[in-house]
Design a binder for these strands. Structure first.
Lengths: 195, 195
DNA sequence: TCTTTACTTGACTCCATAGTCAAGAAATAT
DNA sequence: ATATTTCTTGACTATGGAGTCAAGTAAAGA
């Protein structure tokens, strides 16, 4: 009855779904800047249709980014929650985020981006920031993590890692990992007897 | 007499000099990927002339890169040589290289090794690598720098920093500096009593 | 079935950059 | 002063991606 409001035509509906799916696949692999033609090709549709249905890259990202990213990030948060030692919990969080940035270009883009659109994503990011801030505070309370480290530093350390991950294309994963461990260990309170 | 061999015409000579100068200025400011049209404009010459005289970007870079970069790098090496404490010397070297990467986009491009050509530059880079390796070894001999750190790690830490510096455009210098200190401190031997 | 309306298409424009080249301009040689 | 040679130019092609739209196609409604 009243449900007929603004219903898409059958083919349009099919296409919207196809495009969403294609965008998920393509973005997952290549990040959020992959040319839209590739998405179109993957969806078996012309580029025009994407613009028509989603209004361009930003719209498409908005339509897809939550499915693409949210569960990774909240997954990390909950998985880390289980760790009891505050320092270990904090470090584990950072490690997982940093690996996510390497493994998932799209998630990395989200973590890097201004991403002005997409309200739920903004919420998620803020949530994650608060979470990270809390972990940091708790870890610092043990005295084993430097207390000159601010939540802002944390954000920027993640930003830097993202920039690196983006450029790492060819670099092997374990080298990336090996190197971020150095930074991680630099966040611990230095031993007192330093020259 | 025999000196007349392969002499450029007066205007050509003037242009070559003008272009070199312009390239120095423009590359210094914007790095080695600045559009050649900008160099041409700065030299008051058409793009075609640059291609004609230098054979393209690579040729132009070759003609300019030594003046643009060599003295910075060798300057750092000699200035650091004066420091007596091996650890301080090693760390000071890294700090200076990392700041150079922030301050001088062109030097950064060179350190990132976009440049297969240019023999003297390659030599310089190898020289610097050996130098850094030596500093590392000496610093490790004190026991105060982690001994699992390899010269290769060092190279990649510089590479990573360069990637960051490139993206840092808007970021303030002191934040950049602040953050690389964390990594630096992560290179020191950790205190024994860990967890 | 035919009409109406919603949808899709691909060819088009636009932008920024790399790189080329025929024709005109300028220096040099005589 | 003219012929010769060397240079320079700017308009041209090519690339790769964003974004648009008139015209054609297909679904829905009668």
């Amino acid at each position: 009855m009243t449900e007929t409001r603004s219903r898409l035509r059958a083919d349009a509906q099919r296409n919207v779904e196809g495009i969403r799916q294609a965008a998920l696949d393509v973005f997952r692999l290549g990040g959020l800047n992959t040319p839209l033609d590739e998405v179109a090709r993957a969806a078996g549709v012309s580029k025009g249709t994407i613009y028509h249905r989603f209004g361009g890259r930003q719209g498409l990202i908005d339509a897809v980014v939550t499915d693409l990213v949210a569960e990774y990030i909240s997954g990390i948060m909950t998985s880390v929650e289980a760790i009891t030692d505050p320092v270990e919990r904090f470090e584990s969080y950072l490690r997982k985020i940093w690996l996510l940035q390497y493994d998932e270009p799209a998630s990395n883009d989200v973590l890097l981006r201004a991403l002005p659109g997409s309200e739920p994503l903004t919420t998620l990011c803020e949530h994650a920031s608060e979470f990270a801030g809390r972990l940091l505070g708790e870890a610092q309370a043990t005295g084993r993590i430097r207390d000159d480290l601010t939540p802002d530093d944390l954000y920027l350390l993640i930003w830097e890692r993202g920039i690196i991950a983006r450029a790492c294309d060819q670099q092997p994963r374990d080298g990336y990992q090996r190197r971020f461990e150095y930074t991680l260990s630099g966040l611990r309170t230095p031993s007192v007897a330093s020259v």
